[in-house]
Structures are given as C-alpha cells and as structure tokens.
C-alpha cells in the first residue's frame, strides 16, 4: 500500500505525518504522533474513548481515516489544559472523583467540552443523551454527570 502524506493542524500546531490509506486517525495520533490521550476501547464507534474534534465536530477517531484530516483542525485531549492550568472540566472530574481507571476520561472530557461549548447550561437529561456514546466501565455515570454540571456552573460564573 502506498503511504499518504497528510498536513493538518492539531491543537493549534501544524503537523505533517505519513500514514497508510486504511490507518485510522486514532492509530495515527497514538502510534505516529505520540498523542496517547485518545484511547481505543472498541474500535467500532461504540465506546467514545477515542473522542476527538475534527473541524469543530465531535467524532470517534477510530472511525476516521488519518488521510481524511488533510487540511482540517484536529483537537485532542492534549490541547485541553492551558499550560499547567487544567480546564474546569478536568478540575471538576478530579474533585468529583469522576474517574477510576481513567480509560474513558479523555473521551468524556472532549465530549463534555463539545457540549458546553454549544450549550453552557445543559439539563441533566441533555448531558446524559449527549454523552450516551461514551461508556464507562468503572465509575458509574452519576459522578461524571455531576462533574459536568459543576464545571458548567463554574464556567457560567455561578460558583467560585
């Protein structure tokens, strides 16, 4: 198979990589670019552990070809904290103990951020439906939902 050269932007940086035509974006991020935040839970779009933003849309990077991100803007969990400052979602996940093994966490954070970016004040039902494509085997969803609600409140300036 002939390799493909791809130019894209990842977390604001211009990145060039080479990949196989059938190689997923998830494999490119993890195996070629050393961005290990996105995880492979299933590889078939069911678990959301590989959640990534491509041109402003939340997607499963296991169901995107690396070749498809030519000329796009990719955002991964590695770009979420600003320097040493955690994003409010990351901070609230820690405070609410919304993670145990942590495999699902990057996916939940990316997906929750995509929700809050377009809906700063979601209801619990909206949060649960939005996150239905993110599976967690250990923590249980209540703490995760509460962490998202807390982060949303803080981002709205309602709590210190």
């Amino acid at each position: 198979m002939a390799s493909i050269a791809v130019s894209t932007t990842i977390n604001g940086d211009e990145v060039d990589f080479i990949c196989q035509p059938d190689e997923s974006l998830l494999d490119v991020l993890r195996n070629r670019l050393g961005l290990m935040g996105a995880k492979e839970g299933c590889g078939t779009g069911d678990c959301g552990a590989c959640s990534t933003m491509v041109d402003g849309r939340l997607v499963c990077s296991c169901l995107v070809l690396g070749a498809e991100v030519e000329g796009t803007k990719v955002e991964t969990i590695e770009g979420m904290a600003e320097g040493g400052d955690l994003h409010p979602l990351q901070q609230k996940f820690i405070e609410n103990a919304a993670l145990q093994c942590g495999i699902c966490t990057p996916g939940f954070l990316i997906a929750a951020k995509a929700l809050l970016d377009q809906n700063p004040n979601p209801t619990e039902t909206e949060i649960r439906f939005w996150l239905a494509g993110n599976l967690c085997r250990c923590t249980g969803y209540d703490k995760i939902v509460r962490a998202v609600q807390d982060a949303a409140a803080e981002m709205r300036g309602e709590t210190a």
């Binding site: 779009g45 959301g48 959640s51 491509v54 849309r57 939340l58 997607v59 499963c60 169901l63 995107v64 997906a111 995509a114 929700l115 939005w130 996150l131 239905a132 494509g133 993110n134």
Partner: peptide, 9 residues
Amino acid sequence: IGSTQIQGR
C-alpha cells in the same frame, strides 16, 4: 443514528 460522535460523521 448512533451517538453524538456518530452524528458528527
């Protein structure tokens, strides 16, 4: 169809 992630594609 699918989840939010699937909807994006």
